[in-house]
């Protein structure tokens, strides 16, 4: 009857053109993009003032980041599975990106810079893959990386609970793919990074993210050696250690 029909739930699987429900994501996400061609462009579609200004500490690094953020373009925000695919199916994959271009997929409200409150105590898992050998794989690797991010499966226990009964936050703040003349790099940014004296299980949790990235997402074997010419292992570095660039930087490798 009319009443039950009006109230019925139609997913995109039962009605691809007139579905009336969509699948919400754990968090809303924003896609950002930059390339040499976006530098200096000031586009009405993506004014830098369109996203809420994140308070940035007055450090030399932060000032540099502000300049950099002017060249990075906000593409779109979305909060459902269906919208993600609508976006995915209408933009070019990493294998077709111009050289020196990057996609940044970050949770809404977090800018893809280590100065952001959500990133400043964190770090990143990353892997570098030689361009020629991986041009045929990189699109699938990036897709699977995005799906693990939006599906919230990188972090087996998104339990950074604040004790208030709100849904817990996960460790992941964003994922990045970088196209370079000689290689691709994939990165996963985390809210926190373990310290040398870590005792609360954070290191295990961070390593769990890295292992899932290496085996579940990228399809390598656990323990498989990946480093070589233009290639790195799947390795974690805190943003603070990246900034220091010293030999003291302690990488975690899975």
């Amino acid at each position: 009857d009319m009443q039950s029909q009006a109230e019925s739930i139609r997913t995109v699987f039962s009605d691809p053109t007139n579905f009336n429900v969509k699948h919400p994501l754990y968090s809303p996400w924003t896609l950002w993009f930059d390339s040499p061609a976006t530098k200096g462009r000031n586009l009405p579609q993506t004014p830098i003032s369109a996203f809420p200004q994140t308070p940035i500490p007055e450090t030399p690094g932060a000032v540099a980041a502000q300049g950099w953020m002017e060249d990075i373009k906000r593409v779109i925000s979305f909060d459902s599975v269906e919208e993600f695919w609508g976006l995915y199916n209408n933009i070019i994959p990493p294998s077709q990106l111009p050289q020196k271009a990057n996609y940044y997929l970050f949770k809404e409200g977090i800018i893809p810079a280590w100065e952001d409150e959500a990133n400043k105590n964190g770090g990143k898992w990353s892997i570098q893959l030689p361009r020629e050998k991986n041009r045929g794989n990189v699109d699938k690797m990036w897709l699977y990386t995005m799906l693990a991010a939006i599906g919230e499966t990188f972090d087996p226990s998104p339990v950074l609970s604040d004790g208030s009964g709100n849904a817990p936050k996960s460790l992941i703040t964003g994922v990045i793919v970088s196209a370079r003349p000689q290689f691709y790099r994939l990165s996963i940014w985390t809210r926190l990074a373990p310290s040398a004296t870590e005792e609360d299980g954070l290191r295990e949790r961070i390593e769990g993210v890295g292992r899932h990235f290496k085996t579940g997402v990228l399809g390598f074997q656990e323990g498989q050696k990946l480093g070589g010419a233009l290639a790195t292992e799947v390795e974690f570095l805190s943003h603070k250690d990246s900034e220091r660039k010293g030999k003291s930087a302690k990488k975690i490798i899975v």
Binding site: Q45, I76, G86, L87, I91
Partner: peptide
């Protein structure tokens, strides 16, 4: 998506 800006304007072309 309705709110996807033109890719050419973003410099987001192959």
């Amino acid at each position: 998506p309705d709110n996807l800006p033109p890719m050419e304007a973003l410099g987001l072309v192959g």
